[in-house]
Design a protein around this nucleic acid. Sequence first.
DNA 1: CTGGATCCTGATGGATACTG
DNA 2: CAGTATCCATCAGGATCCAG
Lengths: 108, 108
Amino acid sequence: MPCDKSCPIAHTVDLIGHKWKVLILRNLFHNGTQRFGEIYKGIEGVSQKMLTQQLRQLEADGIIYRKVYPEVPPKVEYSLTALGSSLKPILDEMNKWGTEHLKQNNLD
Amino acid sequence: MPCDKSCPIAHTVDLIGHKWKVLILRNLFHNGTQRFGEIYKGIEGVSQKMLTQQLRQLEADGIIYRKVYPEVPPKVEYSLTALGSSLKPILDEMNKWGTEHLKQNNLD
DNA sequence: CTGGATCCTGATGGATACTG
DNA sequence: CAGTATCCATCAGGATCCAG
């Protein structure tokens, strides 16, 4: 059974199968609506460019909502849409798994 | 709350936060033990190099097991380890979500 | 001063050909 | 059959620059 575009998992991976996207979502689930700079500081190792790019893709896919406040200094807030919120079970499972295996495997 | 190396989700993402890894796992969950060529045919768009590379990483992380049969023609079988199998809930959630949103969003 | 666009460069992924 | 090697296109990171 091949894994083509009709495969649900391939579809999911297509939308959130990227390291930073998952971590962005983690931050939004964990902290609620956040500004660009907050997300940036909240994710270790990401560059501004990458963050912008991934945020835009998530926005384009309807997973997060981007609200720009036309003021000085600029303020942009990101929040989860209903579609984005529906991803929570996946994140929860990843969190559960990671918690389990950080315990047993506490390297570094 | 920053997302550093102590974050369970970051840990999970570190191990399986890669497009092809998830699809490899999907194939192994779906079809059981498989040979290299079967996985290769089962995943649309992946190159041999990528597949080899990701399989090796999954092996190094103890998620899959690689069994080489010393015969001609060569035969290599990949299967999930216990650790790999424990990822099933995550894959299940991704499958569930993808199924939902392929229905509603049947583009292409 | 924040969000992000641009430019340059090094790293990564893909296609193909080749080997044990 | 299951890779490895090679070459090349695209992508990611860092620094810098820009607009509001």
